[in-house]
Design a protein around this nucleic acid. Structure first.
Ligand SMILES: [Zn+2]
Ligand SMILES: [Zn+2]
Ligand SMILES: [Zn+2]
Ligand SMILES: [Zn+2]
Lengths: 177, 177
DNA sequence: GAATAAGTGTAATAATATAACAATCTTTAC
DNA sequence: GTAAAGATTGTTATATTATTACACTTATTC
């Protein structure tokens, strides 16, 4: 199983994630004779700020701030479409948000682990899930063309931080401000 | 494997689907001491018109037409929330649309087969998919709380209607008008 | 260096969903 | 029965996500 879950949820050398992602993006653009223009690269860069997905309008805001001038929706959506097309990013349907793909070069059906606590998302490539989906579909006489698998729950660090299971949830002492 | 794929994609006694769904809904409401008010029942009824999911605003329009007066978004969204809460319908994240659940009484993780051609959606309950997802998550140290599995492709009838694979797609003779 | 294609700027709007508060209807308790 | 409490609905406004259409600019091709 291919997965970036250890990186995604923990302290790690994220600068390396970013560097790798940008390098892969450049390669892929060359291979596809596509242009990684400044806007597109900025959007990809923003999406690789962390392992937390970003909504399109968050990107718009950040990009506006970065460049000092008002960036409008089509600009960002076009960049997102380009990056999606090239497989450099993914869209998370359950969040209406976008995230950089850590494995753009390997053919992979996407399976995402969304931590509801810290917001980080890991991506897995799993033959098992794909097989079980294929077999389920086959039993129904259904021809699979693409699939969306998004799993919501808690990553390891967040599980450890959470109140113990089977115990009453302690009332949080901090005020809600 | 539990699935309504044979019904969903083919000619069948859909009136029976509808009747069953409404009966199950009523039972469930009684069991949960919840009220299946006229609005809620209408929305459920609309969602069971067919096996094609409906967007919230389609429901608003149809309900407005049905009742002769302008139904507003919160009315429908509240009914949808109620029905979702009771497990009588599901929301399809990839379509932003809603569909009646054929198995509200059985505990099931949802797995949907969305036909891109006819728009019908079948729901499957599959131990295999759940197991493979659970095992994938476990390998990543991830605690699963819920999951979204939406599979896009072609149902059996639509496969048969499609141009043969491995042959060049014939240029459609009909004008686009 | 024109012609073409690709990318970007801009204004407007579509599509989906929620917040906030008032009004009404149901249920419960007395 | 009736008042109080709770649940549901009505209404206005607005938030969030995404697309259309067309003008303009930049890059590529011949
Ligand atoms: Zn990282
Ligand atoms: Zn987490
Ligand atoms: Zn049916
Ligand atoms: Zn079909």
């Amino acid at each position: 199983m291919m997965s970036n879950s250890t990186d995604a949820y923990q302290q790690h050398d994220h600068h390396r994630c970013l560097k790798t992602a940008l390098a892969q993006a450049k390669n892929r653009c060359i291979a596809r004779k596509a242009r990684l223009t400044p806007i597109r690269e900025s959007v990809l860069h923003l999406l690789w700020q962390s392992h937390r997905p970003l909504g399109a309008y968050k990107i718009i805001d950040q990009l506006s701030e970065e460049t000092g001038k008002r960036v409008l929706p089509p600009t960002v959506y076009r960049a997102l479409d380009f990056l999606l097309e090239l497989g450099l990013i993914h869209r998370l349907a359950t969040l209406n948000a976008y995230i950089g793909c850590p494995f753009p070069d390997s053919a992979h059906s996407d399976c995402f682990l969304l931590c509801r606590e810290c917001g980080s998302v890991a991506e897995c490539s799993t033959a098992n899930v794909n097989k079980s989906i294929a077999s389920t579909a086959e039993q129904a006489g259904f021809l699979v063309e693409s699939q969306t698998v998004e799993i919501l729950g808690l990553c390891t660090p967040c599980q450890e931080k959470m109140p113990q299971p089977n115990k009453a949830k302690p009332i949080k002492p901090e005020a809600d401000e």
